[in-house]
Amino acid sequence: MNKGLSPIVKNVAAVALVPITVFGLYVIAHGHLTPGGGFPGGAIIATMTALLLISFGTSWVKAIGKERLSMAESLGLVGFVGLAIMGIGKSFFNNFLVGQGLFFGNAVAFGPNPGWLGTAGLIPLMNMAVGLEVFAAISLIAITMFTAEVSK
């Protein structure tokens, strides 16, 4: 059981925790408007996991549970494939929500515009699924590597 680093490092990590997570969620949620998307956003949130592991040790891993992370990873990938299959009436990865006026399906103004969150149909939902999958996969890799028993 790793106890982590000194109290100074723990306090700085606790302060940096919330901005990192919020920035990662922002990058995921605005993936269809600004640069970024599911992959970089999930990686940014997974950086938070690595920071927690190195500064606080492994005492909190049991509370999260590797099984839950593994389930989140599978859920993200299954959600991505399921969203892709839902448009199979026309083709795989058919963006059937765009322009329908439903959830995330509002019509966009063409040309340069300030951008609105409720546009682009399936793309924000796929961004969220991929972000969940990438976050859970990289967190699982880091936690498994950090808690592994290695004989020197």
């Binding site: 950086t47 690595a50 920071l51």
Partner: peptide, 27 residues
Amino acid sequence: PDVAIAEAAIGAGLSTAIFIVAITKTE
């Protein structure tokens, strides 16, 4: 900028943490 964000998050953040973890486990 898309590639820049991905490179900064994965290359500078995550891979360094994973390398450090691997070094602490070995030599």
